[in-house]
Design a protein around this nucleic acid. Structure first.
Length: 314
DNA sequence: AATAAGCACAACCGCTGCTCA
DNA sequence: CTGAGCAGCGGTTGTGCTTAT
């Protein structure tokens, strides 16, 4: 395991950041900005590599970081975006102001584990986990197996995989959804990607009408819409990996359990009624009405006081 | 009370793609 | 064109707290 290039020359500290280090980094970036990260540790007087500083700042020290539990709206947005773009955490995070890709990634991974681990009487037929595991016929543990198939190995933007109706898709079978849509110009689904970029607006992507004039471009700036109704969002028929019939049934149970929970949550709460979810926050300011503090030297003390516990009281 | 297991989160590692000389 | 340096990303591991046994 080699060290990263930026950490080769100097002795760099690793592990958790101390409050003193945090303060040094905050003070430096607040006063000078970060410009070139490789220069930050030296100029800030830190025994860290630039990469580590960058990560610390982005994931923890940034003033506009929003911490705490994910709201149901955020959960739904994450799930929706993940269904569309897969494990592109940075892309997902870009649509959740104040949330970091690392945070979302951690949340997703623990959420997946939690969901899969949680046994329910009607979904897994009360089978002992060992039996379930043997049912899958996988030498490793079930969680790893499911993670591999349902989450981490999902190629997000590969058009074949995206539109495949036989491959493993978590939560939403995009292929099935699109299968139900009528493509007016008669393009094969795969060919849609070869069209020139089309402007995406509410009219070109109306799922409720089950009709789209053209498939929107899947570039890095494309934000898939939240889907307004559960009926259009959740395919009635869940496509499962073709391992064998018994395993398919287990997958079916797990998927149906997920979908049932999804429906329950959706029906019990008033979720974002329209697609431009974050537009709502644009008018109201950042989430929960918190004011984002601009990182200027004049408000440094205020900033420091608002940082997570290790920094408080500095 | 001791210890193991579970869990959340912070941090690291290795890779990729971009920029620029 | 090419290679070095860098930022950014996703996967993985480490750590410390909480809960269960």
């Amino acid at each position: 395991m080699g060290q990263h290039s930026c950490c080769n020359q100097q002795k760099v500290k690793r592990g958790l950041w101390s409050p003193e280090e945090d303060e040094k980094l905050i003070r430096y970036i607040t006063n000078h900005g970060y410009g070139c990260w490789s220069e930050v540790p030296e100029k800030a007087g830190l025994q860290r590599c630039g990469k580590s500083c960058r990560l610390r700042w982005i994931n923890y020290l940034r003033p506009d970081i929003r911490r705490g539990r994910f709201t149901p709206e955020e959960e739904k947005l994450i799930i929706s975006l993940h269904g569309a773009v897969g494990n592109r955490w940075a892309h997902i995070a870009s649509h959740l102001p104040g949330r970091t890709d690392n945070e979302i990634k951690n949340y997703w991974n623990s959420w997946i584990k939690k969901k899969i681990r949680k046994p329910t009487a009607n979904s897994t037929s009360n089978k002992p986990r060992a039996e379930l595991r043997s049912h899958f016929g996988h030498p490793g543990n079930q969680v790893d197996f499911l993670n591999q198939n349902l989450a981490t190995k999902q190629p997000p933007l590969d058009q074949d995989a995206l539109f495949s109706t036989s491959g493993p898709l978590f939560m939403f079978d995009t292929g099935s959804i699109l299968e139900g849509m009528r493509i007016p110009d008669g393009n094969e689904r795969g060919d849609l990607f070869h069209q020139p970029a089309l402007e995406l607006n509410s009219e070109t992507w109306n799922v409720n009408q089950q009709e789209v004039p053209a498939f929107p471009p899947l570039d890095s700036n494309y934000l898939p819409p939240l889907i307004e109704s559960m009926e259009s969002m959740v395919p009635m028929e869940v496509q499962l990996p073709c391992i064998n019939e018994e395993r398919d049934m287990e997958f079916e149970c797990l998927k149906r359990q997920e979908l049932n929970e999804w429906v329950e949550v959706h029906e019990s709460q008033q979720y974002c009624p329209s697609f431009p979810f974050w537009d709502q926050f644009d008018h109201q300011g950042p989430l929960s009405g918190e004011e984002v503090l601009a990182p200027t030297s004049s408000n440094l003390e205020t900033m420091l006081s608002s940082y997570p516990s290790p920094l408080k009281g500095i």
